[in-house]
């Protein structure tokens, strides 16, 4: 295991920088919105999903109902369904570690284990497990630092929750450059603005999720159909 951790560490350094800083922002924000710092750590251990944890701060602070929270989580994290697909074979022989591998499949861990293989002399399963474990450690450490800093340092934090908006703007730009079609973005904007106008700012989440899904399904044929067929072909060949 030590050998595997040693081999995995260099590969995880970019994730370390990202996770510690975003985790720190999460911990800080959680405490500054009036929650006990232990909840921040609890969430980073049990949930371990970046964007969702930021949204969770907002949901918790507003006392949103549990069913709505469950649906929001499903909506924000449904992309994960995809990640597992690539690893059905890869995780097959991992025994007890398999559950943790599945649990810890974040965007960043996914992209690392997609592309990496253990160096000669290191057990590949242990190597992948080390990557997953190290990444979550960074996330937890970041959250702890942020949560403690937030409890100790008193400065005027008015407006610090803008970090969440900033995070989503960054993800938005990254996606903008990744996707060929921008119709889903347009659908997201129109559907959300529509439900904001009809249902008001307190009740907009549920209707916007329903609108988005419905409109996406209606426009299925229009949205980049060719690419989607190609992708499916490739996936069928792979299995």
């Amino acid at each position: 295991m030590r050998k595997a951790l040693k081999a995995a560490f260099p590969a995880t350094i970019p994730v370390m920088l990202g996770y510690i800083s975003v985790g720190l922002a999460f911990g800080l924000l959680m405490v500054k919105t009036g929650h006990n710092f232990l909840w921040a750590i609890f969430m980073s251990i049990t949930v371990y999903a970046g964007s969702m944890q930021f949204i969770a701060i907002n949901l918790l602070t507003n006392g949103v109902g549990l069913i709505e929270i469950a649906l929001m989580t499903l909506f924000v994290n449904v992309r994960h369904v995809f990640y597992g697909l690539s690893f059905i074979d890869k995780f097959k022989d991992m025994g007890k570690k398999k559950t943790y591998m599945i649990f810890s499949l974040t965007d960043e861990t996914y992209s690392l284990i997609c592309s990496l293989k253990a160096p000669v002399g290191v057990d590949n399963n242990l190597f992948l497990f080390s990557i997953a474990l190290l990444n979550q450690m960074y996330w937890i450490i970041g959250s702890i630092i942020g949560a403690i800093a937030g409890s100790l340092i008193t400065f005027n934090t008015q407006g610090i929750d803008f970090a969440m908006t900033a995070l989503f703007v960054v993800i938005f730009i990254e996606q903008w450059f990744t996707y060929k079609t921008h119709i889903p973005v347009l659908i997201g904007i129109v559907a959300t603005l529509l439900s904001l106008m009809i249902f008001g700012s307190d009740n907009m989440i549920l209707p916007s999720m329903i609108f988005i899904t419905a409109i996406l399904l209606v426009f299925e044929k229009k949205i980049d159909k060719k690419e989607y067929e190609k992708r499916e072909e490739a996936m069928n060949n792979e299995f």
């Binding site: 989503f168 973005v185 299925e220």
Partner: peptide, 27 residues
């Protein structure tokens, strides 16, 4: 084979969701 609609939703939901979340933050 994975159901087509799962593949479709999984691929195109994320950009729509992020747009929604930005508006949600600024509501």
């Amino acid at each position: 084979a994975t159901p087509k609609y799962i593949v479709y939703i999984g691929k195109y939901l994320p950009p729509a969701v992020i747009s929604m979340l930005i508006i949600y933050c600024l509501k």
